[in-house]
Write a protein that binds this DNA or RNA. Structure first.
Length: 584
RNA sequence: CGGGGAGUAGCGCAGUCUGGCAGCGCACCUGCCUUGGGAGCAGGGGGUCGGAGGUUCAAAUCCUCUCUCCCCGACCA
């Protein structure tokens, strides 16, 4: 490809609304342009990268025996009503009506459509296992789209759905997908890890996320420094020894704590008269509003509520659906506790009290007294009723690993690029997708689903591979393999040499970009650095007069002068070296 | 959804408080010059000042409404 004939509108200045590196660089390198919040156009260079990711995904999916399909982006409401998600999914689902007034939505995911498809065709246990996938545009009306392709509203995703006769079948595909994902992300040149995850709105039991570690990540991952345990903090647990109850229960007493309500302040306030009070024997009481119902949550003073765990608990045990958790308002707190905001406690409450497991072993602790400027000392579990104990806290860095019980957990930021779920029968049951087993009895199909964010993977690769000058593409995702710079377009021999190398490399099937523009050298070098093509051939007057051409790698590891006739061979050598590094 | 900020040339911004010729840098076009790290000189083109309404002799500037975009938050207990 000739640069002079290509469409790569690079930007010298940093676009004002880009926050993270990948977003800035994709805009600056002329890969993408924003059309509307969270909605982007792909320019030739960006599209080439996207296609590279897609093809790696496609190859690895095909290798597992999965079959490619293409499902509609526009989906009828009836299907979503049948699965129960029309009301469940909330505002992220973009809904609209057709000319007849019928309800439709832009597909944010395709469980309903695929299940509807196969329920018509799968009759017998002989028709399975089956694993279908597609690479399709999704639309999710995110609350806050941001970071370019990282969290867009319209985005490309590979989603696969597997169908099996039993749990063992699901487990086998799950394993296969897990391996395929590992190969895919390795081939994309990414440093990543797979961690246990919450299954969120998709539902299902077992679930793993593939996380690319990057400071710009929106997820937090807890991982053990010693063993292989890793989990999203929405899900992560830690090992905590039960406190030893070596003291007798004391009598509860009221104490005046004027204007002292936060955990920190209470501990500081009591420091002199009651030095035994620390965050560890203080119980904080959160009044939570979950779908118009008020609940009191008890946590140890140093713990933080994990809203995902709470929502999951309520959905599982209180027959609530799609629980949205919010903090109760001041009025609601007064209504629920009869006391002031900031002084809530479990004693005497009429609403349900749900406590974190850590509270179970606590003794003689401090709580609010549901009365302005007042706390209780020496509260014990028999002073109030706890409806249930559950894991509701968020793990923190430095805590003990729940698996090996010896390593500590560290918490790092990650970008979720892939997610695998065991769905079980959630959708097949709702949509009545059944088959006849070898006894002729009707059984519900078992499902799994497996997603990869295509654009997000490309963006994550840039987050991990760049420098001040621009992108440093790993070879498998690079828009071109070789970038030839003809430094002095006014020198006949420079142009001829560059053109000769270009023609020869093209002849060999190499994807090569030649910068043949009549621009000053600085502009060409800056653009080349920005675009980040892995191998560069620089043909300039100065070195050509000495009979040399410069061959280098964008990652800075190689920079050599070779005679013109050896350039092609040298380039091939470097390409092979780069390819080997990404081999799995 | 709540809070904050911003919409002025393709991009980045000033001008708004205190109403009075719509500006700067980069980019773009022409010419000269220049070719190993986003040069230089000279000339030039380009803006319904997000939109609607209002106040005024006069509005980018003041008032009202509206649209869009960005950031922060959704653990006070």
């Amino acid at each position: 490809m000739r640069y002079s004939e290509y469409y790569v509108p690079t930007l010298k200045e940093i676009p004002a609304d880009a926050e993270i590196v990948s977003h800035k660089l994709m805009l600056r390198a002329g890969m993408i342009r924003k059309l509307s919040a969270g909605i982007y156009s792909y320019l030739p260079l960006g599209l080439k990268v996207i296609r590279k990711v897609e093809n790696i995904v496609r190859e690895e999916m095909n290798r597992t025996g999965a079959l490619e399909v293409l499902l509609p982006t526009v989906q009828p409401a009836e299907l979503w009503e049948e699965s129960g998600r029309w009301s469940f999914y909330g505002k992220e689902l973009l809904r609209f009506k057709d000319r007849h007034g019928r309800d439709f939505c832009m597909g944010p995911t395709h469980e309903e459509v695929i299940t509807d498809l196969i329920r018509r065709d799968i009759r017998s246990y002989r028709d399975m296992p089956l694993n279908l996938y597609q690479i399709q545009t999704k639309f999710r009306d995110e609350i806050r789209p941001r970071f370019g392709l990282m969290r867009g509203r319209e985005f490309s995703m590979k989603d696969a759905y597997s169908f099996d006769i039993d749990q063992a079948g699901v487990d086998a595909v799950y394993e296969k997908m897990y391996e395929a994902y590992t190969r895919i992300f390795k081939r994309c040149g990414l440093k990543f890890c797979a961690v246990e995850a919450d299954s969120g709105a998709i539902g299902g039991s077992s679930s793993h996320e593939f996380m690319v570690l990057a400071s710009s990540g929106e997820d937090l991952v807890a991982s053990c420094v010693e063993c292989s345990y890793g989990a999203n903090t929405e899900k992560a647990v830690s090992y905590r020894e039960e406190a030893v109850q070596n003291s007798d229960k004391l009598e509860r007493t009221e104490i005046s704590t004027p204007n002292v309500s936060s955990v920190e302040d209470v501990v500081a306030f009591l420091k002199n008269d009651h030095p035994e009070t620390t965050e560890l024997n203080l119980v904080k009481t959160l009044i939570i509003k979950a779908e118009n119902r008020l609940v009191a949550i008890l946590l140890r003073g140093d713990d933080d509520l994990n809203e995902v765990k709470l929502a999951n608990y309520l959905e599982a045990n209180e027959e609530m659906e799609a629980v949205e958790i919010e903090m109760a308002s001041e009025e609601e707190i007064i209504e629920a506790t009869g006391g002031a905001q900031g002084f809530s406690g479990p004693v005497g409450l009429s609403i349900d009290v749900i406590a974190d497991k850590s509270v179970k072993s606590m003794i003689n602790f401090v709580t609010g007294a549901n009365k302005k400027d007042t706390h209780y000392l020496n509260v014990n579990l028999d002073d109030f009723t706890v409806k249930a104990f559950a894991d509701l806290r968020t793990v923190k860095a430095g805590e003990t690993c729940p698996e090996c019980k010896s390593g500590t957990l560290e918490v790092t930021r990650g970008i979720e690029v892939g997610h695998v779920f065991k769905l079980g029968q959630k959708y097949s049951k709702a949509l009545n997708a059944t088959f006849l087993d070898n006894n002729g009895r009707a059984q519900v199909i078992n499902m799994g689903c497996y997603g990869i964010g295509i654009g997000r993977t490309a963006a994550a690769a840039i987050e991990q591979n760049h420098d001040d000058g621009g992108i440093i593409f790993p070879l498998p995702l690079a828009p071109f393999e070789v970038h030839i710079i003809a430094v002095n377009t006014n020198k006949e021999d420079v142009v001829q040499t560059a053109e000769k190398v270009y023609a020869e490399l093209k002849e060999l099937g190499c994807d090569v970009l030649i910068d043949d523009r009549k621009e000053r050298p600085g502009i060409k070098f800056k653009d080349a650095d920005l675009i980040g093509v892995p191998v560069r051939v620089t043909v300039g007057k100065k070195k050509l007069d000495e009979g040399m051409v410069e061959v280098s790698l964008r990652n800075g590891s190689v920079k050599e002068d070779v005679p013109p006739e050896q350039v092609v061979q040298k380039v091939q050598e470097l390409l092979k070296k780069l390819a080997d590094e990404c081999e799995v």
